[in-house]
Design a protein around this nucleic acid. Structure first.
Lengths: 259, 259
DNA sequence: TTGCTCCTCACGTCACGTGAGGTGGC
DNA sequence: TTGCTCCTCACGTCACGTGAGGTGGC
């Protein structure tokens, strides 16, 4: 007859685990010897190894107790389910492994590849890293709120980069972000360009399109960029106002003055 | 800015998990809006997704907090370790999967293949299933107590099966186990055979060999078989005594009567 | 005698889950 | 007004780990 230590060692578990299985009724308490030690026979070894095999496969103990009492058909069915779950878990770990290596490579897993492609495009157009980061943060917030709309938006944005005026605007804003005492000439140029682009869009009726019309995407972007309190943003707003745009964050035309 | 629900949904976690990360200091508490709601920016999305990527890889939260503050070299090193562990875990699950399918096939994982081979041998020799089960239980106890000696014992036991007398003894014991009112004639025949085999072994000085001499292997076997209280075992012991063997479980010769 | 194994409580751990009871925005 | 999201405690869960304090066999 085996002591608890011998039993546990053979099954590859701790004595505490065996006692735990007794506690929860998974393994019957064996008889005791004269000193009160538990003494185990061969059938307990068989039972314990079965338990460990199932537990190692991720089966909760509460399920194992039911399994040990199931008939052959039920048991076989359960084994099928367990095997499927194991397969799932293995696949999960394999994708986890890929993601970990992407983390190491510095890729961020936050944005879908279309968006990172767009951001790389901006970099190649000479947009400053700071500006790109701001764009990225904006995209993250958009992706978080409208995960399924990303696919529709990105191609539009990429197409817009064919417009040299827009690219020029991005470059101007890049420069503006990087100079601390705000450069008035640059700011004016940016406002002129923005106004012009807004006019084009307004005419083409693409100022605000679709579902996002009622939502606060531009606001979110600005919040993310931390620009809402930036004095440069304030000055820009003023310049846009002068050009007849009420709120450059929503791009609404100012009402025509009465009379 | 995102609410906790939007943040959590995008990262694929529960809001409770996010709050938990705040509690343990893994994720900084963001500012609140007028209603006391937490409001998250893009950087938190990035941080949370990093956390989940690591947590999904099995990294404990306490380690993650250290990782997020580590420099590039330390981080890369840690990623290596995590990747190794993931590989280990995948292999573990794959062997677990095999073992599960063996469970379903009815194989028991309790004994090394040499022993199950030996037991199959017994079956082919016409030994009854009940007897084989008894043998198996004995082997389980031996394997549990001397796991590394099994390799030495099994070949010996297999070789012994070349002895037709031993095979005959096994068959007799098989029959004896299966008849309830004990068959005296069979019992006597078994005792004669055992005595003869013991004599052969005694002469060849193989009665008790090596390390197991001082241990109680035969006792264990009998305990396992639940035979120590079996009346048939008692009768068998008496018959062996008559034939000059003090204790058939230890196979010791009785002392020569004095004078 | 020393060291190892065994015994029984009983609290601790890890990463959240799950109500309980209440407020805020559409 | 109803339903949904948010808030803060605070206890529960799962499978043991980890002492605490004590006894038994070689």
């Amino acid at each position: 007859m085996l002591t608890i230590g011998q039993l546990a060692a053979y099954a590859g578990v701790t004595t505490r685990a065996v006692r735990h299985y007794h506690q929860v009724g998974l393994l019957p308490e064996p008889p005791r010897d004269e000193s009160g030690y538990r003494r185990y026979g061969a059938s307990t070894v068989v039972a314990l190894i079965k338990i460990r095999t199932l537990a190692n496969a991720g089966v909760p103990l509460s399920e194992i107790s039911r399994l040990l009492e199931a008939d052959t058909a039920e048991f076989a069915e359960a084994i099928q389910r367990i095997d499927n779950r194991l397969g799932q878990e293995i696949r999960r770990l394999e994708t986890s492994r890929q993601q970990i290596s992407q983390l190491a490579a510095g890729d961020n897993l936050v944005l879908p590849p279309e968006v990172t492609g767009y951001l790389d495009r901006l970099r190649r157009l000479g947009i400053s890293e700071r500006m790109v980061e701001g764009e990225r943060d904006g995209w993250i917030l958009i992706a978080a709120r409208w995960p399924d709309k990303i696919q529709d938006i990105v191609p539009d944005k990429i197409a817009q980069l064919e417009n040299p005026q827009l690219v020029r605007l991005y470059r101007l804003l890049s420069e503006l972000l990087d100079c601390d005492p705000v450069d008035e000439a640059l700011l004016v140029e940016a406002a002129d360009l923005t106004s012009e682009l807004a006019e084009q869009a307004y005419v083409a009726d693409r100022v605000i399109s679709g579902d996002m019309a009622d939502d606060d995407v531009p606001f979110e972007l600005l919040d993310a960029l931390g620009l809402e309190t930036d004095p440069r943003a304030q000055r820009f707003t003023d310049l846009m106002r002068e050009r007849g745009w009420a709120d450059w964050r929503r791009m609404r035309r100012m009402p025509e003055p009465p009379g």
